[in-house]
């Protein structure tokens, strides 16, 4: 992928992510037997938030929300520009760091608990992502995203267990049930995003859409050079995690970390070992 395509894609990623989010709200409503909001609902929210009077706790907290948006945007560009996959993953950590430090920086119990849980989310899914970067390297022979996208191999065939593991950790990244402890709207009312309002909340809200694009592009990589399969994978992943979101209740953070560490990571490692054995 050239820099220009990546740049344009990154620039429009909030739009893409907004559509995904709008579709998700409809799909979720239909799954619950409701009609649901219009497809453009996220954009209505976006423009409405633009018009609100902003109130802030203190300036540091407020601009950390904006930094979260910029950081996520940059992380997405790093991923899309075809550079190193591991570095793109760690840039994602960097962008989360802004949200977490912002969440910690106010004396709100909900925000601090949420930020702590956000870190635990990271502890849960981050090793899995590093392992999948390694696995993709083993299959395609490169860490460069552009190389993976032009590889003749379809990593999915070699990495079925790892793909299942990543699929199950998708809710942890996008903060959906069963792994939505960091947001937990009924419990801690949005966690680190609770104290943002008006335009500053808008930044956090938009950053979440960009994270959708980030996460789904990661799924896309599992199809390697076969881009049609990649699109199918994204659609499958989308419906799968919406289904998961609707049929499961929230687990607590210990269960979440335990599930990732004791079930998903061993699953991924098994896959890695099998492929290493098969290759040697």
């Amino acid at each position: 992928m050239s820099y220009w395509t990546a740049f344009i894609l990154t620039l429009f990623s909030p739009v893409i992510g907004g559509f995904i989010y709008g579709l998700e709200r409809i799909v979720r409503a239909r799954m619950q037997g409701r009609v649901g909001p219009p497809l453009l609902q996220p954009f209505y929210d976006f423009f409405k938030l633009m018009d609100k009077r902003s109130i802030i706790i203190h300036s540091f907290h407020a601009f950390m929300g904006v930094m979260y948006l910029i950081g996520t945007w940059f992380a997405l560009f790093v991923l899309l520009s075809g550079g190193d996959l591991l570095i793109a993953i760690f840039f994602h950590v960097l962008s989360l760091a802004f949200l977490v430090v912002g969440g910690f920086s106010v004396r709100s119990p909900y925000s601090v608990i949420g930020a702590m849980r956000e870190l635990l989310h990271m502890v849960a899914y981050e090793p899995l992502y590093v392992l999948s970067a390694t696995a993709l390297y083993l299959v395609t022979g490169t860490f460069q995203v552009s190389g993976i996208l032009h590889s003749e191999h379809v990593p999915l065939i070699y990495l079925p267990l790892l793909f299942i593991a990543v699929l199950f950790s998708l809710p942890a990244i996008l903060k959906k049930s069963p792994f939505d402890t960091a947001e937990a709207h009924q419990e801690i009312i949005g966690g680190p995003e609770i104290e943002y309002s008006g335009k500053f909340y808008e930044a956090v809200y938009t950053a979440k859409w960009i994270e959708y694009v980030y996460a789904f592009f990661f799924i896309f990589l599992f199809a390697g050079g076969n881009h049609i399969l990649g699109a199918l994978l994204i659609i499958f992943a989308f419906f799968f995690f919406n289904l998961l979101d609707n049929v499961t209740a929230r687990v607590n953070f210990r269960q979440m970390v335990a599930f990732h560490w004791y079930i998903l990571i061993p699953l991924a490692v098994t896959n890695l070992m099998l492929i290493a054995l098969w290759r040697s």
Partner: peptide, 10 residues
């Protein structure tokens, strides 16, 4: 952000 309202924590 001196022009913005300040509020207490929720």
């Amino acid at each position: 952000f001196t022009g913005t309202d300040r509020v207490y924590e929720y």
